[in-house]
Amino acid sequence: MTVNEEQTTIGVALEDLTREVKALQTDGYRLVQIGCTDTGGAYEVNYSFDRGYQYRNLRLTVGPETEVPSISDIYWGAFVYENEMHDLFGIPVNGINIDFKGTFIKTAEKYPFSVTRRGGDQCRNA
């Protein structure tokens, strides 16, 4: 398989996030997704961008209660991912353009993917 694309990942500090995102937007990148990964006690937030199949990731590492600035004033469509980040992981995101305040994804349990919630899952084969 010869996939004609490049993927790069660079770390970014919390205070540089909006500046870096703004720079990428000026360069003509589009927002692909924002996704969280829990790395045992902390979250890795991947902001993925793409321009002509060149894939760039900004990786932000934050603690469970750290407030993250919203990038929705730069990319208007970021609100779906940021609300999802808040509703599933419980990461507080500051200043989303359409803030659903935890009602975008309605889950029976609050913050089902949060690092602070562990155990209680039933699985026989695992």
Binding site: D87, F100, T103, F104, I105, K106, T107, P112, F113
Partner: peptide
Amino acid sequence: SIGYIHRGLER
């Protein structure tokens, strides 16, 4: 608004 049938398959 969505979330009526969220299944958590990622987890």
